[in-house]
Computed example of a mutant assay.
Amino acid sequence: MCVDDNVILVISDATPKTTPNTTREVIVVKENKTWEEALEHCRDHQYDLVSLQSEDDHRYARDKIQEATTNEVWTALRFLAGQWLWVDGEPQQYQNLPLCPAWGRHCGTLPKDHSTQWQIRDCMERRNFLCKSNP
């Protein structure tokens, strides 16, 4: 059985968007924060952590994160209630994520290099993050 962190999190009730993330403003925040602090920071500024739905989204985000001061940046990917999801309400469609991640490793990062699509990290680690504007 997979045990989730005891976290209360408000997930955006936004309906899935038809425009790709690349049409919205995406910014790299060069402050080192935990995953939850990063989410709060984005939402306090009328943004959200970025979800990456397509190859175009990934390429755009990888270009943007070259500005980051950490080797990986937080994204909206989170393991909650026994499943991986994007906390901004976008559908999560990746099949290669662990079904039961190691304790505490419930948050997704995007690495600067092109070695992997995702890294699963401890949500309490501190790193830069990507925010996207809300429509």
Rank of each mutant, 00 (worst) to 15 (best):
residue 8 I to G: 08
residue 49 L to T: 00
residue 51 S to F: 02
residue 57 D to L: 02
residue 116 T to I: 06
residue 37 E to W: 12
residue 59 R to S: 14
residue 59 R to Y: 12
residue 69 T to M: 12
residue 110 L to C: 09
residue 47 Y to Q: 10
residue 5 D to E: 13
residue 57 D to Y: 03
residue 109 T to V: 03
residue 37 E to N: 05
residue 67 E to F: 13
residue 28 V to R: 06
residue 63 D to I: 11
residue 99 L to G: 08
residue 87 V to P: 05
residue 112 K to V: 04
residue 116 T to W: 09
residue 33 K to W: 11
residue 131 C to P: 00
residue 61 A to Q: 08
residue 18 T to E: 13
residue 83 Q to K: 15
residue 44 D to G: 14
residue 71 N to Y: 14
residue 96 N to Y: 15
residue 115 S to V: 05
residue 92 Q to W: 09
residue 4 D to Y: 04
residue 121 R to E: 13
residue 118 W to Y: 10
residue 98 P to Y: 08
residue 28 V to C: 06
residue 115 S to K: 04
residue 50 V to K: 02
residue 82 G to N: 07
residue 67 E to Y: 15
residue 71 N to M: 10
residue 57 D to S: 00
residue 8 I to P: 06
residue 68 A to S: 10
residue 65 I to D: 02
residue 100 C to L: 01
residue 91 P to T: 07
residue 29 V to P: 02
residue 62 R to Y: 10
residue 14 A to Y: 08
residue 51 S to W: 01
residue 75 T to E: 04
residue 72 E to S: 14
residue 48 D to H: 01
residue 78 R to N: 09
residue 71 N to T: 10
residue 87 V to Y: 01
residue 54 S to Y: 06
residue 14 A to G: 10
residue 34 T to E: 14
residue 9 L to E: 09
residue 89 G to K: 00
residue 92 Q to D: 15
residue 42 C to L: 06
residue 106 H to V: 06
residue 91 P to K: 04
residue 12 S to T: 00
residue 125 E to H: 11
residue 116 T to E: 12
residue 113 D to W: 05
residue 129 F to S: 06
residue 27 I to M: 13
residue 20 P to N: 03
residue 58 H to A: 07
residue 120 I to F: 02
residue 32 N to C: 10
residue 25 E to L: 14
residue 82 G to K: 03
residue 15 T to E: 13
residue 60 Y to K: 12
residue 78 R to A: 00
residue 25 E to A: 13
residue 25 E to S: 11
residue 20 P to R: 02
residue 130 L to M: 08
residue 5 D to I: 04
residue 126 R to F: 10
residue 101 P to W: 05
residue 16 P to I: 02
residue 49 L to M: 03
residue 38 A to E: 07
residue 48 D to P: 00
residue 37 E to K: 02
residue 53 Q to D: 15
residue 97 L to C: 04
residue 135 P to A: 08
residue 108 G to K: 01
residue 110 L to A: 03
residue 103 W to I: 07
residue 96 N to G: 09
residue 111 P to F: 00
residue 132 K to T: 11
residue 46 Q to T: 06
residue 67 E to P: 06
residue 9 L to M: 07
residue 63 D to L: 09
residue 77 L to A: 02
residue 121 R to Y: 12
residue 44 D to E: 14
residue 60 Y to A: 14
residue 13 D to C: 08
residue 70 T to N: 13
residue 108 G to T: 00
residue 114 H to K: 11
residue 86 W to P: 00
residue 57 D to Q: 02
residue 87 V to D: 02
residue 39 L to Q: 14
residue 3 V to E: 15
residue 57 D to P: 01
residue 129 F to A: 06
residue 132 K to Y: 14
residue 11 I to D: 00
residue 87 V to L: 00
residue 109 T to P: 03
residue 18 T to H: 14
residue 90 E to P: 02
residue 29 V to Y: 14
